[in-house]
Each structure stands twice: as structure tokens, then as C-alpha cells.
Write a protein that binds this DNA or RNA. Sequence first.
DNA 1: CCCTTCTGGTTTATCGTTAATCCGCCACGA
DNA 2: TCGTGGCGGATTAACGATAAACCAGAAGGG
Lengths: 334, 334
Amino acid sequence: MVTMSDVAREAGVSMMTVSNVLTGRKRVGEPTRDRVLAAVESLGYEVNLTARHLRAGRTDTVALIVPSFHDYFAEVADRIAPLIEAGGRHLVLERTSADARSEMESLSVPRLQMYDGVFLSVAGLDGDELDRVPASAPIVLLGEREVPARFDHVRLDNVGGARLATAHLLERGARRVLALGGSVEPSTGMESDRRAGWAEAHREAGLTPDEDLVVSLDDFTAEAAHHAVGRVLDDGVPFDGVFAVNDTAAFGALAALTERGVSVPDQVQLAGFDNLDVSRFVPPGITSVDPGYDVVAATAVRLLERRMAGSDAPREHVTTPVRLVERGSTRPDV
Amino acid sequence: MVTMSDVAREAGVSMMTVSNVLTGRKRVGEPTRDRVLAAVESLGYEVNLTARHLRAGRTDTVALIVPSFHDYFAEVADRIAPLIEAGGRHLVLERTSADARSEMESLSVPRLQMYDGVFLSVAGLDGDELDRVPASAPIVLLGEREVPARFDHVRLDNVGGARLATAHLLERGARRVLALGGSVEPSTGMESDRRAGWAEAHREAGLTPDEDLVVSLDDFTAEAAHHAVGRVLDDGVPFDGVFAVNDTAAFGALAALTERGVSVPDQVQLAGFDNLDVSRFVPPGITSVDPGYDVVAATAVRLLERRMAGSDAPREHVTTPVRLVERGSTRPDV
DNA sequence: CCCTTCTGGTTTATCGTTAATCCGCCACGA
DNA sequence: TCGTGGCGGATTAACGATAAACCAGAAGGG
């Protein structure tokens, strides 16, 4: 491995001069600079980032730690990456693994210290894990659960979004709307907020939400939703609308309905949450709550960059707005 | 920041002893070990990974560098992550950015050196970029294009998969099958291989592939496919089958067909490639080529671990098998 | 009684950078 | 003529850890 001191010797200058030429942090005379660059070229020198990081105390890298690389998180990551790069830093993704041992690894203080800043999606985390995360480092939490006040935090307007979607279903004539994936007992996750929005919409419409229509899911996959909706249909529970807590679950519901010959939106109307790219193209098009990915990303990056710049401004807890995108899975306005 | 030397002083031992206690690399007497651990606890010491990396020459981290965080790549990442963790290392994802400047960043030698090993998806890379990547570091290339022999390389059986899907369409009665996303002129990407498989299937069935049915796409998104298929329909070009080079494009095709009242699979049969999770749930279920994600991941990890272990075995170029998953978008066997 | 071996620990020498200082030189104004 | 102030560059001293060599003392063998 060729080091900076090799280059310095070759160019007949000190290491600091080489460093200054490469980083541009101090002015270096033209002829000297040329000699250094020539030496770099001829030796094929490449800076050792690890050494730079140790000495400089920066890694110029930001991590986004998510429970899965799919769907919602991929969308967010795609939006955050260019913003971070615009700030001269690099974004990497890490996954909080399913298995508990590696989970602690990702969230361990030493690993977090490897980054200038961290976006941490709290979806899969339990309270203990969150408590162990130091608030000293620049960290912005993303996600729906309640978090300690000592963190910056960006979340969607889950209640509002769920209310929008449900109100839309009601307005278009649905009267018995499943809350697919809503949790029955109050929890701290998005499923509870979105269920609350579902209930609110009913009350605002002068209706009483029927708790029997809340269908909980073990995980928010298409498969689980497919299974759950299939069972509701088999049980003969009547319903004419489905609000799925995310689009992936909506796909599962759509499949279950279609398989049994239930027409969407004629017999059952369907709305989801997340507005994934593909939701627009899945016939008949899934009506969905758009989380405003760009706003989420921009807000999160703003908070993190401020923290990385050393600000000790009070922590912010931001709720970003959402909007409803109407598609073929709900009936057109009359 | 509390360092190892603080701990050493507190415990009344040398730094090396602290290091040995924490890494377990050498035996340390019971009472001494206890004193060290107590000091670690009371000071709240956490190892500095950057310093360890500099000294030890390992980062215990592996990177997966992909052009996008979506779909196929998310699936692969989900499979690779646990395998890498089983080897005691960490997986991080990086994206080769759209914009050229940061693209070079991700692939620069210094950044690659940050990792013990790298999986590099070559989908978005041009030849020059690949040439600049050093073959000295442990690198395994993933993806469809031809790559220099100096790299280990894992690719799918694209030709075989496309042939399977197309043969299936022909066998079920389709006679004019669009190659959606196939490139007309031979390129080095997957689109060219998959188009070749499409043509092979025709010849094997005693048919002549009609080049007019090859519909190229600017990018392999649902949106582009939706647009392209819509135009083919508007032009009145007759067809009764679609082989889409990936499932995302298949969704776009399905949307375009459905919007115009063309029934799938009765009037047009449809098959895709990638077998995404959601493909199973998009009515009527997308027939798709399954890339065997587990095999791809296992193979790639095997190659990389061998390389990280220092082996100088000859480079391998592995093509992994695929299989067809039949669903409702093609007609049932008669 | 001396020599080897083992155990548990310390010392020394870096890993490859960069922040902070320092230094010699020339130019310039009073 | 002498201070004053850049400018270009070299020196010094870490950043926080670990590999390798070294060493004191106890134990065991002939």
C-alpha cells in the first residue's frame, strides 16, 4: 500500500504539503502542487479514509437504519440520498436485523459513532433498545411510535391520513369499512394511530365505528392481509369498504377479494396508505394516502444537518402532512 | 470522549490488557479482568471502531452497492444480509447515485477500501467505471452484463428464464408475444439476454420471432411500460401475449391493458421476470420468472467470503438457475 | 540447583492521516 | 533602515487502537 509519506518523498516535500494539495485546505504554490500531483499519479496513491477519519474526527458518512429495505423505506432512502450528497456527505443503509444479536450490533454506540449522523427508523424497535441509544450523537428518529423527547423526530400525520382515506370511503357510500391492520388495543405504532383516524372519520360522519371491523395483522405483508381478508369473507362478515394501513396490505386484500369474485370498487371499495409507485398501476389503481416522501426526507435532513453542524437547538418533533390520491379502487365522485 | 487509556489508568493496568479483555484475544487473569470490566462500566467506555480499523486493517463491514434501493435489489439485500452477519460481519447498502459526480464517489478506490469486501451491482455502470474498479480488493460483481474476467461474477440465467416464460406463453396459445423492454440492438445488459431468450423460445417452437414486437423501454419502470404498451395498443398492433423483462414493467403493461378493457389472460397473456413479492397478489397474479434469490445470495456470499479469506483461487463466473412461477396472468394448462 | 515452560502482564512501535505551530523569506510602507 | 505582514512550506504531536516482542515470576523436570 502506497502512503502519503511515499508521495511526499517522491515529490520532495513534507507530508503536510501533500495533504494540503489533496484536500485544498491550504494554499500551495503552483510548481509544488504540480510535483505532488505528478507523484500521486505515478505512484497511484489513494487516500486512506480510515486514517483520515481517525485524525479528523469526521466520516462524512450518514447512516439510515431501517427494519427492512422494502417499500416505504426504499422510497424514503431514495429521497434522502441526494439531499445528503448535496451536503457533501454519503448515505449508507443498514438494516436492524431480525435476529436480536445483530440488532444490538447495528444500534451499538460504537457503530453509531462511525457516522457523522444517523437516521433511525424506530418501526421495529422496542423501548429498551431506544433507551440505550445515546442522544448525544446527531440522530433523527423516523417513524410512528412515541419517542423520548430527547430526540429529534419526524413522523407522518397518521391519524389525519387514515381519517382522510376513511372519510373518502364513507363519502363514496361505504358503510362498513374494515380497518385492515389496525390494532385493537392501543399501541404506540402507526397501526394504532391509523386505526384512530379510521374511528375519527366515522364519528365525524355521524357514524359509530364498529370495532368488529378492526382486523389486526401479525405483520403488514400482502400475505398476511390476503389471509386475513380471506377469512373475513369466509366468515360471512358483511363489509363494503377496506381501509388498509399500508399499500402492501391493500394488495393482499385486493387479491383475496378478486379471487372470490368480489368486485372492486363496485361491491367493496379499497384504500391504502403509502402510495407506493406500483399502487398506481395495480388495476384498478389503489386509492392511497401519499406520505409526502419529499417533505419527510427534506425535514429529516434539515434536522440532522442542523444537529451535525453542532447546533444545540431544542429537539423538534415534526409531523408532516399527507394527502389522499384517489384512484379506481374507490368510486368516482357522483 | 473516554478512551482506552482512561480505562487502563482507572483499572491500574496497561492499555494492552484492556484491549485483551475486550477482544478476548489473549488470556487475562480473572481478578484483572474484573477490574477492567468494572472500569469500563463505570467510565462508560465504548471502543472507537475507526481506530481499531486503522490499526487492525479490517472494518468487519461489507458493502452492497446497487443502482437503486428498490425491488430486485431489496430482495437480494434481504437475503445477503443474514449470511454476511453469520460470518461475523456487517452489511451496509450504498447507492450508485444518479448524478455522475457522486457515482464516482461510491466507486472510488478509497471508499471501496473502507470495506472488507464489496458486492457491486453492475446494472447502472458503464465500461469505463468498471475498468477503474481495482480487482485487488475482494469484490464480487452481481448482474447481467458482461464483465472483465478479472472479477468474480454472479448472474442469473437470463436467456433461460426469458425462454421459459416465452415458451410458456406460446404453449398456452399466444402467437404474437411482445418483448417488453427488450433492446433491439444487442447490448450488454439483461434486456438483451432476455430478448434473446424470447427469440430462442420462438425458434424452438418452430416460429419466427417478429422483431416488430420488440418494444424497448427507456427505463424499466411501470410508468415507462404503461406508456409504451398504451402506444402499441393505440397503434393497433395486434398481439396476444406480453413478456415483460421485469415485473415492474409487467405492472405497467397490466395497467395499460386493463384501462383499455383488454382482458388478461383471456385476450392477452402476460409474464414477467423477478417474481417480486407483490406479483403474487396483483390480480390476476403475475406469472413470473423467479430468480432464485436465495441461490444468488448464497453464491455471491460464498465467492466473497472466499476472497476475503485471502484465497487467490481463479475467478468464478457463475450463472444461477431460474424457474417459472405460473399464475393467473397466463392461461391454465388444458 | 539450574534450565525450560507457562502464565499474565507490560513496553514499544506503529497504522496513515491532519490540526496547530513554527520558521524563513520577500515585499512594502514609514 | 527597520518593523510588519503575508506566503509557502516544514515540524511536531497527536487521533485511539493493536501486533509483536519482551519480561518477571511461578511451576515443573532432570
